[in-house]
Write a protein that binds this DNA or RNA. Structure first.
Lengths: 330, 330
DNA sequence: CTGAAAGCGCTAACAA
DNA sequence: TTGTTAGCGCTTTCAG
């Protein structure tokens, strides 16, 4: 123990934790001893004593999907500002994976959990009634007393679709994920799409909706090719996410359709890749860093008030802006 | 304590850790009590006792860069197979960031560290002479007793360049990062590029080399535009990474050059986005999952043999394959 | 097969 | 301003 070098025991702890009442002379001495012995606090022991690990969990489907990778990057950066480390769980977008992530926090491995729900549905509300700090990042699917940070899905999708219409599209297709409930991303964005059509007096045509099983580039490409080959006329596509849209650009190119001349395309999320596709992709930007910052802020708040009586769940819906690029350009 | 429900104390520990000598009847009883009380082991206490945290650190420049995101995804998956969690540190590709990540392991927060070195150089070899489990993922820059998992940089770059030449290119440009030493990625891949030129009897022309400060899409795009606008003739571009190449595709499009008709393009890394660009991007695939698996395997080995005397450093250089896509297509 | 004793390294609370 | 006492919850060791 570093006390050997100095003369103290507990004082070391005070020095390490910047407690005020330490004579600067003593502090010096301790600091010197620490340096000489290359002493390091044992965080495991500290954790045991304090009940905090300084670690938060972030459960996302997969970090290599651009959207989640960018979200993770922002959350890690935001957490680092508050001296928190972030461990990443990959849930594979499955219910089981998300439940497994939930279970981990209960082991007190993490001080709190940011959970990006995709697989869990309203039926699982009870499972979320846990007493440890948690923030759901995604849709407001649950009624439980859990903080939420959500996107402006309906409004954003409406704006995206309206943008296509403004640019002259009259037959706007939708490449969307499967709609499992009434409040998942795919359903909400579909709502926004329909709302925009309504407002423009354009009838909703089910033939223009291409459902895909997973929100990946691959499925986006397949859906776009299928749409192009189906013989159904269309002059615009709103894709449920940018990742899907990037795949769709690929699929449209494969089918010999030019973007934006023949078909205009817009996505949702404004991932950084979208500026670099050819043509560059128009998108809805939900302000990721605001979302990340808010999520971490909520979580840190919950961690701080741990033990106190349940507070009401907070909810934050991010703002959005439309970013017009070549894919909807004239 | 769960012992209240059952009648044991330490036996709970045995049950939890699947120790053999427990009568199945007792085990049942304990298990039932655990379920009823919703008991969870306190990992902090276990960590303190065992000296293991079950957590490894992964230090990469930024998880939102596709290459590192995909690497992280594979490493997390690989670690999960061995019941290890992965905490991610973002070093910002800076020396300070990498040193900070090193320091954390010394706090025993992590059982070991996988460090993707970009900012550290040969001069920092001494700093890596640490006694805790570590694996360097990147170039073999250091002589210290540290395990390395590296890419076949020279050979891969040679193959990429040779591929362009085979496809008819005679003026092959190189968009490369700054060459800081003699063994960084940019230098090694440049070596491979020159080797291929030599072998084809094509003289090396410095005018065809566009250096960029960061390996990003943005810099790739700028470099490609600069190259196109410079008036120097070229019919092929080897980009040091796929990320840079995706930017270059964008830049070439901006300059009115068609890929592959006017200019052929190839990258390095084979990130998943490369299949979906328009045109799709040819690349060198260094077998990420083999690298991730090896890195985790090395680390787990080091963790297991912790305390034993120093072993010699192991080194693994991954294999590669060339993936030809539209960007070099005829 | 089960339990008792001891201690991992730290810090909250208090005393000096 | 510094030190003492205790104990966080677990597991290693050894005895029963």
């Amino acid at each position: 123990m570093a006390k050997a070098a100095g003369v103290s025991a507990m004082t070391v702890s005070h020095v390490i934790n910047d407690h005020p009442h330490v004579k600067s002379e003593t502090r010096e001495r301790v600091l010197r001893a620490i340096a000489e012995l290359d002493y390091r606090v044992n965080v495991a022991a500290r954790n045991l004593r304090t009940g905090r690990t300084g670690l938060i969990g972030l459960a996302v489907p997969e970090v290599d999907r651009p959207y989640y990778g960018q979200l993770a990057a922002e959350i890690i950066a935001e957490a680092a500002k508050r001296d928190l480390k972030v461990a990443i769980e990959q849930t594979g977008a499955s219910r089981e994976g998300e439940l497994a992530a939930l279970a981990l926090s209960r082991n007190r491995l993490y001080d709190g959990l940011i959970l990006s729900t995709v697989g869990l549905g309203p039926a699982d509300t009870d499972l979320l009634k846990v007493e440890y700090p948690m923030v759901i990042l995604g849709e407001r699917i649950f009624d439980g007393p859990v903080d939420h940070v959500a996107m402006p899905n309906v409004e954003g999708a409406r704006a995206a679709t309206a943008h296509l219409i403004e640019r002259g599209c009259r037959r706007v297709a939708l490449i969307d994920g499967l709609q499992n409930g009434e409040v998942d991303v795919s359903s909400l964005r579909c709502d926004g799409y329909r709302k925009a059509l309504d407002e423009a007096g354009i009838p909703y045509d089910p033939e223009l909706v291409a459902p895909i099983e997973q929100l990946t580039m691959e499925h986006g490409a397949v859906a776009a090719r299928r749409l192009a080959d189906s013989g159904v006329a269309f002059d615009g596509v709103f894709c449920v996410t940018d990742t899907v849209a990037i795949g769709a650009l690929r699929g449209l190119a494969d089918s010999g359709l030019r973007v934006p001349q023949d078909v205009k395309v817009i996505g949702f999320d404004n991932i950084s890749e979208s500026s670099y596709t050819v043509p560059s992709l128009s998108s809805i930007d939900p302000d990721h860093s605001l979302m990340a910052g808010t999520a971490v802020g909520f979580l840190v708040g919950r961690i701080a008030e741990k033990g106190k009586k349940k507070q009401v769940a907070r909810e934050f819906i991010s703002r959005f802006s439309l970013v017009a690029r070549q894919s909807t350009g004239g």
